[in-house]
Write a protein that binds this DNA or RNA. Structure first.
Lengths: 143, 143
DNA sequence: CCTAATCTCTCTAGTCACTAGAGGTTCAAG
DNA sequence: CTTGAACCTCTAGTGACTAGAGAGATTAGG
């Protein structure tokens, strides 16, 4: 019930209208019923669903991961094997990212501090970023 | 000096061969001199440069940011204003990401724990990700 | 010096996750 | 019942690559 147009769904979920249609296209969001004239009519469950996607995306999950996670939540009472696989893969990835971001956070903070009373040649971001030390956890997305 | 082929540069920097050519195409890496037969010949400074790009990318900087940062490092002794702007924007973004990932890390860990002896309906990752509380810092890339 | 294996060249097209625009139709407020 | 906002489909463009075809260059071994 509560019959939302795509525009209202967009405002409620924070996902842009064309993006919602795109998600439908690629099968990430189920095609909703249509009005007489052919316009999409959603119910509130879609708001939840899109928020989930939005936050997941913002945190770096791929659409495939989100699709998998959604499927799991659609039929619970299954054995957890698949969920477990997805989750532990994601956990490792998330931890790796946190570590990398933490390193950069420190460096950016230092840079801002130096910059507050100096010149660019005080800034170590470039050095820091070309530093080979960062390569340890080098199963990065970027080859 | 030290005359690297594109393949050697690739191995030394960790950036794939086609990606190096792509960076040249879009003007992120200067076009190097060529051999008699027309092959690219690099020197060691390019290794540094590509490492910088690689790490920056892996940590979420866009190519435009990296281009800007590079330009700054090419002519230091400038005022730090621009570098500062880039850096503080990135710092805010990085901190926001860390916070979000931290929340997800906790949820994934809990999920794995539940999954260890249970069913999918115990899993709260989806709830967590659709939670509106995450919306506070809502200047997310994903609109 | 010659050959074979390995690189490298350019170019086009594909990927992911959108985003923008054209050109046309439907809905809902007044 | 009109009018203007919102909706429809479709194609094409974005960023940051990645893959493949087909042709030419380089280098190590014999």
């Amino acid at each position: 019930m509560s019959d939302l147009s795509i525009g209202k769904l967009s405002r409620a979920s924070g996902v842009k209208v064309p993006t919602i249609r795109y998600y439908e296209n690629i099968g990430l969001l189920a095609a909703p019923p249509r009005s007489e004239g052919g316009q999409r009519r959603y119910d509130k469950t879609n708001v939840e669903r899109l928020r989930f996607i939005r936050h997941g995306r913002a945190l770096g999950f791929g659409l495939d991961d989100l699709r998998a996670l959604q499927e799991l939540s659609d039929r619970p009472n299954q054995s957890c094997q698949r969920a477990d696989a997805i989750a532990s893969r994601q956990l490792a990835e998330v931890e790796r990212r946190i570590a990398g971001l933490e390193a950069v956070r420190v460096e950016l903070a230092r840079m801002l501090d130096h910059c507050a009373h100096g010149e660019v040649d005080q800034c170590r971001v470039i050095e820091t970023l070309s530093d080979h030390a960062l390569c340890e956890g080098d199963h990065l997305k970027i080859s």
